[in-house]
Design a binder for these strands. Structure first.
Length: 850
RNA sequence: GCCCCCGUGGCGGAAUUGGUAGACGCGCUCGACUCAAAAUCGAGUUCCGCAAGGAGUGCCGGUUCGACUCCGGCCGGGGGCACCA
């Protein structure tokens, strides 16, 4: 009787073998085709969680499968190691952020190794290591010298709790993405990367990313936000304070004859200038700045305006003038910070007009009958033809847009333009634990790059976190340096880079890591782009957009000829778990709860527990399950198998004890098949069967499984590949010993190897196979065996299934029709009447229309 | 408010181009082995019905010989954006 599979021994043994042999080291010179498989690298927060296990298992299955299929696979791992949790730990636990981070990395590295991932650890990197961020500083200077970096005093999102600036992307509903504190607006000098220079190519490039989820492409498209329209000039009736007029932007130039006012943003230069001479306006502007920026307040925020008393000239209606307001709903950082108000066809403008008694003229009508219909409580934004609009009357809205733009350009008071929603990327962070920006400020020379030979600019070790704010700001021995330009007194930039910069190029460094420069161009270009990138959908916009930008920026400055960093992208779902609410109303963790007599109770007191929603595992809901003890109990393979089973990989996976036990059973089942086969040996079937394989049915099943598993893994449908393997296992178990059965067991071990690699190695070795299954070739499906020679034909009457029958594959329509008509059920239902019509789909079905 | 996605057994989910709905797993039921349990193995498991048969992929309608699949309209759930002119 075969022994059970012992994962603890097998895991440790095979992990050691792989490591000693360097099995998963990627080599540049093998001559095999390259494949780069990458999962988003983790932030070293302390311990690996189930989400990591799921993410890295998926990548691992793909990497291992591709290796077996003959690819040279690059599958690296590293650490996104800068960031605020390290500083928070420093403040709370009085440890240095570096010590905290490196010790977390050690823990998590060991946990990842325990799962047996086929990673090339020789390329491991951590972004907090000067040997990484020094090269990042060099790349930053490259971009700086190419004019893609600039500094400007700008109003920023200031997080008063974390005492730092946040990117627009890091402000969620008006609150800091990390602290949750209400964000304030402050003016600071900030470093920016010119991502807007790339808006068009980043948008257009999405079309070619056909191996990305549509959802992510759409999200990026909306984020970049291209709007076509007309930018045109309103002249003031009489110039004031040196201003003769201003520009506005509209996507609806067709409605220009419906304009009944113009409005400036409270931050508009004209508004600010006027306010200096008008205390009432100044007060209004101050009031506008007060309002909260969170979603709920904006939703209900009243449209408010201040009438400047000034008038602007309508560019197409000689003699007509419009009142000029300052309005709270006009944004300074979109378009030109000024608008034309068309109440008839824009809801905000209509709300505003109703409040201030401005006219709302209809200039677009869905039908001629509705041309005279007045505008009610709702602005009309649908399609139609122009009315009340002079030379535009009768044109469709589309035609009118073109006509107005053409006229504006001909008369040079405006021009057709594209406006983007995307803003430049503010990368300054007033934090210690990040990449220092390699700039020295000098009274005489301004902002001077640190010379390349003095990189990296290393973070000082001796810092204190006793006070809030940036410790670098109060570290004179670090900040006070000579200006690299003139030698005079200088001061280091104390801002550090947004950690999204660190993750914008790590995939390049993985592919090529020379000591003296960020990467070797030729080597990096051999591996890139990443063939398959896998990670959470929460990075659908920020990280992925920044990495795309960074790659294109490197291309523009001639450093790397890669357009897109990630050819294939997959966003995996979360790992969820039930939540438990205890008798005192607090959340309970899964190990504080047990089932007694069909009821959930607390382990401690036996009091009843309520089951809450199934949600993403999180510390706050206390519904996390630590992978480590599970791996110790069931072994790496059962955990990996469970991560792949049942749920489609892009959907959420609910962790359950029953699920992991099911996986454990399958691991044992495969082991039983393999070890029994090994014990029996080839002699067992000799003479039992004659003929080549001895079991044609099983051989067919095997080859269909080989094809299906391969295809399903390639398309990342792991749950389907798992189902294929269950079916194969059942088929093998039911088959009597034969050469075909032996062959099927051996092939199944190889098919299982990417998912349950330790089990597969153990089985491979037990079967007496040479070498490692990790190095074995992926089984090949024989195309001849994929086609059935007999098929099941469905027999329908009026589209309802009435019978099934077997027929040879490729049977003629006439034969199938005759077979169907001979069916007892059909004879009974037709009751002697011939069918009116017969539809035959060869090899599939016969439908008789009675 | 705008944009997008998804609704299939008790549960997770399968189902080329429209062609036998419910593969596979979990759970459950019955049985075998066992003094017993665990483990394992076998049979069954969409619903109604003893059965014959009927119904069935969120709801209503349409196209079709035939619809989970295509079209229109609702209802429900989830995600993204946030006064973007």
């Amino acid at each position: 009787m075969a022994e059970r599979f012992n994962p603890l021994e097998a895991d440790a043994h095979w992990q050691k073998v792989w490591e000693e042999r360097g099995t998963f080291h990627a080599s540049d010179g093998s001559g095999r085709p390259f494949s780069y498989v990458l999962e988003m690298f983790p932030y070293p927060s302390g311990r690996i969680h189930m989400g990591h296990v799921r993410n890295y298992t998926m990548g691992d299955v793909l990497a291992r499968t591709r290796r077996m299929k003959g690819f040279e696979v690059l599958h690296p791992m590293g650490w996104d190691a800068f960031g605020m949790p390290a500083e928070n730990a420093a403040m709370e636990k009085k440890v240095h952020p570096g010590d905290w981070t490196w010790s977390n990395i050690d823990t998590m590295r060991a946990q990842l190794k325990r799962l047996g991932f086929a990673l090339d650890w020789s390329r491991e990197l951590a972004t907090c290591d000067p040997s990484y961020y020094g090269h990042e500083q060099a790349l930053f200077l490259d971009l700086f010298e190419a004019g893609l970096v600039y500094r400007k005093a700008s109003e920023v999102n200031w997080d008063p709790v974390d005492m730092t600036v946040l990117a627009n992307e890091q402000v969620i509903d008006g609150r800091g993405w990390r602290s949750g504190a209400l964000v304030e607006r402050r003016k600071l000098s900030q470093w920016f990367l010119k991502i807007t220079d790339f808006a068009e190519e980043l948008l257009d490039g999405l079309a070619a990313l056909d191996q990305w989820p549509d959802k992510v492409r759409l999200m990026q498209e909306n984020w970049i936000g291209r709007s076509r329209g007309l930018r045109f000039r309103f002249d003031l009736e009489s110039p004031i304070l040196g201003f003769a007029g201003f520009e506005v932007f509209t996507t609806r130039p067709d409605t220009i004859f419906g304009a009944s006012f113009a409005a400036l943003s409270p931050d508009h230069p004209i508004a600010l200038a006027l306010a200096e001479h008008d205390p009432a306006l100044a007060a209004f502007i101050a009031e506008c700045k007060q309002g909260g920026t969170n979603a709920a307040e904006l939703e209900t925020a009243e449209k408010k305006g201040f009438d400047t008393g000034l008038k602007v000239r309508h560019p197409l209606d000689a003699g007509a003038t419009l009142p000029l307001y300052v309005a709270n709903f006009v944004l300074m950082d979109y378009g030109t910070g000024a608008i034309m108000g068309v109440p008839g066809h824009d809801q905000r403008d209509l709300d505003f007009a109703r409040k201030y008694g401005l006219t709302a003229t209809r200039v677009v009508a869905p039908s001629p009958e509705e041309a005279a219909e007045p505008i009610g409580d709702e602005a009309y934004t649908g399609p139609g033809r122009l009315v009340n609009s002079d030379f535009l009357d009768g044109l469709t809205a589309e035609e009118a847009i073109r006509a107005v733009i053409a006229r504006a350009e001909a008369e040079s008071w405006g021009q057709g333009t594209i406006v983007w929603r995307l803003r430049d990327w503010g990368v300054s962070r007033q934090r210690y634990w990040g990449t220092p920006i390699p700039i020295v400020h000098c009274e005489a020379c301004g902002a001077v790059p640190v010379p390349r030979d003095r990189l990296p600019v290393v973070l000082p070790e001796d810092v204190s976190f006793e006070m809030p704010g940036n410790p670098l700001d109060r570290h004179p021995t670090w900040t006070d340096v000579d200006c690299p330009g003139c030698g005079g007194p200088g001061r280091r930039e104390t801002d550090t880079l947004d950690t999204f910069v660190d993750s914008s190029w790590y995939f390049i460094r993985f592919a090529s890591q020379p000591k003296d420069r960020p990467f070797d161009r030729a080597e990096a270009e051999r591996w890139l782009p990443v063939d398959q990138y896998i990670g959470g959908v929460e990075h659908a916009i920020l990280h992925l957009l920044y990495a795309r930008f960074w790659t294109r920026a490197l291309r523009r400055i001639g450093r790397l000829d890669i357009e897109e960093p990630f050819k294939g992208l997959f966003t995996q779902g979360m790992v969820t778990h039930e939540t438990y609410c205890g008798p005192d109303g607090g959340w309970l963790s899964p190990d504080e709860v047990e089932r007694r007599g069909g009821r959930l109770v607390t382990v401690e007191s036996g009091e009843p527990v309520e089951t809450g929603r199934t949600e993403k595992m999180s510390k706050s809901k206390r519904n996390t399950v630590d992978p480590e003890p599970i791996v110790d109990q069931y072994g790496a393979d059962a955990v990996r198998w469970f991560m792949l089973s049942d749920s489609p990989p892009d959907r959420d996976l609910e962790w359950s004890e029953a699920g992991i036990q099911g996986s454990w059973r399958f691991v044992q089942r495969v082991w039983r098949l393999a070890s029994e086969e090994a014990e029996r040996g080839p002699s067992s079937w000799l003479g039992a069967e004659s003929g080549s394989g001895g079991d044609a049915g099983l051989t067919r099943k095997l080859h269909r499984t080989i094809a299906a598993v391969g295809a399903n893994i390639e398309s990342l449908a792991f749950n389907k590949a798992v189902a294929n393997l269950y079916e194969l296992a059942t088929a093998i178990e039911k088959a009597p010993p034969s050469p075909a059965r032996s062959e099927a067991v051996e092939a199944m071990v190889r098919l299982v190897a990417p998912m349950a690699p330790h089990l597969a190695e153990q089985a491979w070795s037990a079967l007496g196979k040479e070498g490692l299954v990790a190095d074995a070739a992926w089984p090949e499906a024989d195309p001849a065996l994929l086609v059935e020679d007999e098929v099941t034909i469905a027999v329908q009457v009026n589209g309802k299934l009435r019978d099934t029958l077997n027929a040879p594959k490729g049977a003629s329509r006439e034969d199938l029709e005759a077979l169907a008509l001979a069916s007892d059920n059909v004879v009974r239902i037709l009751a002697g009447k011939p069918p009116k019509k017969v539809i035959v789909v060869p090899d599939r079905l016969v439908n008789l229309v009675a």
